[in-house]
């Protein structure tokens, strides 16, 4: 399989209160085309920063991210990014929000409406087209954001803890829907989470990051697909993977805590 995203020697620091904080230090990672890769790690390990760099929102201090061999210099149209925070426009209805990326691409109104309706149906928001974001529940907001990302048919998806703020049942429901949507489109996915179960449920591969984006573990997840987010946890392979990755995650937590003490 070919590589879709190649992260090469990426470093990034931020300056806060006149102190330099190294968030990523010489990170290397390859994402294979069509695979679902999950980056797991505690808050503060630089996973969101890495995703922002891959998305082209943030320039790295050094190193390069290649998208299909081409260095990334800004957001790319074939990459969709679902951020942690909902970024639907509050003055647009669900329908107009989902149409927005098509609008920016200059697609005709009738075609926009047709495609938005299709994806609103796909994420289960039919009948809620005319509502404004503030009228929606947390789960519905996520669904609308998902529809807005998918409506342009991106070949690669970046997702940053997309279900982090939802309650456990809703999270399972949306994980299942994501799996079924993904099984149809087979896009490449780079998914960030701090929830190890979510990582194993969704991923073909789970990468545990420590401080500075240093890779602590990189495990293939050989669980069969299609998967069911609820029942898969009762398989013995799941338990084994969970135990192995848990140790890596604890190691990462220790690293992050030690770094925070030093700061």
């Amino acid at each position: 399989m070919s590589t879709v995203i190649h992260i090469e020697q990426i470093s990034k620091s931020f300056i806060r209160n006149d102190r330099e904080i190294v968030v990523l230090h010489n990170v290397n990672l390859e994402i294979e085309s069509g695979s679902f890769v999950v980056l797991a790690g505690p808050s503060g390990c630089g996973k969101t920063t890495l995703l922002n760099i891959v998305a082209g929102l943030l320039p790295p201090d050094s190193g390069t991210v290649y998208y299909k061999g081409v260095p990334i210099s800004g957001p790319r149209l074939e990459v969709g990014y679902l951020t942690q925070k909902d970024t639907l426009m509050p003055w647009r209805t669900v329908e107009r929000n989902v149409e927005m990326p098509l609008e920016i691409r200059g697609i005709a109104a009738s075609e926009r409406r047709r495609r938005a309706a299709e994806f609103i149906r796909l994420v289960g928001l039919e009948g809620f087209e005319k509502l404004y974001p503030h009228e929606l529940s947390g789960g519905m907001l996520r669904r609308a954001s998902l529809a807005r990302m998918l409506v342009t048919l991106p070949e690669t998806l970046l997702m940053d803890e997309p279900f982090g703020a939802l309650d456990a049942q809703l999270r399972l429901e949306l994980q299942n829907e994501l799996l079924s949507l993904w099984s149809r489109q087979r896009s490449s996915v780079l998914f960030v989470t701090h929830d190890l179960e979510e990582a194993i449920i969704l991923g073909d591969r789970v990468v545990v990051l420590g401080t500075g984006g240093h890779i602590i573990a990189d495990e293939p997840i050989a669980l069969p697909r299609p998967r069911d987010a609820f029942h898969i946890r009762f398989r013995p392979e799941f338990t084994n993977l969970h135990r192995r990755l848990w140790d890596a995650l604890m190691e990462s937590r220790l690293q992050v805590q030690r770094q925070e003490v030093r700061l």
Partner: peptide, 28 residues
């Protein structure tokens, strides 16, 4: 909201889109 500006940039929006689709309605 800078997140909304980023969202438009991710959709491939230019400065003009940021002004007309985020800043203007947001300031209204």
């Amino acid at each position: 909201d800078q997140h909304l500006v980023d969202a438009v940039r991710l959709m491939g929006g230019r400065q003009r889109d940021v002004i007309f689709k985020v800043i203007l309605p947001s300031a209204t």
